[in-house]
Design a protein around this nucleic acid. Structure first.
Lengths: 197, 197
DNA sequence: CCTACCGATCGGTAGG
DNA sequence: CCTACCGATCGGTAGG
């Protein structure tokens, strides 16, 4: 009999990965047991293994999907015909929105990647390093074009990436009407500073 | 026989806590076993319990000592007779230096506090919340005195605290001569922004 | 500080 | 998808 109708267009595997992201965020990868995950999914622990290969695979799926999203978006922004400052602004806004739209997965990719095993760990770190290098190059261009102050580009990127990561703390407030205000305030702070002149 | 001479003025307990901080940072609290810690200290796992009560106690000692250091320093800065901008600058510099001087412990307090158990978890979160409130009030004063732009104080503090936390990534470079440059660049970025005017 | 050991829990498999 | 179960490892204790 053909599978024509499906009430939910998500596979069981997707459900498992999503629930895993929530638990890994809340308790950490190592402190989350497969039995606990199974309970959240609504099956016995052994049944999980009909859909996934191992606990580690869950972490890989989460981390690499997020890494991929960021890489794709950065490529798009790089190719836009806008100023460096506008590119930086786009990137900052994208990070803030990713943090809010895919909170669990981004949080896990930020905090639990350390529990990946090789070769996945090396691969992940390599991707992250490359991502940073591309951002640093962007800042470099901004300095050359005299759009930006002659700062140390790697520190500027460190500051920006760290700051937007902090949105994970903001998430606790859950006030969605504050969302645009958060975004605008942070962009303004990171680009124009805090001091009244 | 009296203990007159001691080559190292640190108790065994302090050694254990210090080694624990390194391991908790590298592998996470849950993924670090007491047997592994024992091996690093140079004793059997069971012997650790002559100096400490439990694995959880190690995490508590690390997290609360760091929390205490930050609270004390903030009080000192609050009482100084300097401008709000200078106070903020002092705080930023203090955070950056703490991150570099007590890397393992600060990292653990930042990442592994979640594994604390009540009542320690609640206590820790309460202290952190209060710390943030004091910083927000400081920014508020700066706005009232027209030293700072009329921004949303809680977002400004979120941005600053997140940015300085990011120094943990910088630590990987380990170039100590870059240290002052990192500090100056980040202070400048967070206070005056990135844009050339 | 060690040896010896406890019950609990872990990730994962076999077989149906 | 479940029952039943595996070996490994966990945090921690008893006793010396």
């Amino acid at each position: 009999m053909a599978k024509i109708v499906s009430t939910k267009n998500v596979s069981k595997k997707e459900v498992i990965v999503k629930k895993a992201a929530v638990l890994f965020r809340k308790k950490g990868f190592a402190a989350t047991s497969m039995r606990e995950l199974a309970e959240n999914v609504g099956v016995e622990a052994s049944s999980l293994y009909n859909h996934i290969g191992s606990k580690g695979e869950l972490l890989q799926l989460i981390c690499f999907e997020i890494a991929n999203d960021f890489n794709i978006q950065l490529s798009e922004i790089e190719n836009k015909k806008i100023s460096t400052v506008q590119k930086l602004e786009n990137i900052i806004r994208f990070h803030i929105n990713m943090m809010q739209d895919y909170y669990d997965a981004v949080y896990v990719a930020n905090h639990e990647w350390k529990q990946l095993e090789d070769p996945f760990l090396s691969n992940f770190l390599q991707q992250r390093k490359l991502y940073e290098v591309r951002l640093i190059e962007l800042v470099n261009q901004g300095i050359l074009k005299k759009e930006l102050k002659p700062i140390e580009p790697s520190v500027a990127i460190l500051t920006i990436l760290s700051a937007v990561r902090g949105v994970e703390f903001w998430y606790r407030h859950k006030k969605n009407n504050d969302r645009q205000q958060l975004e605008n305030n942070m962009v303004n702070h990171l680009l124009y500073g805090l001091i009244k002149k």
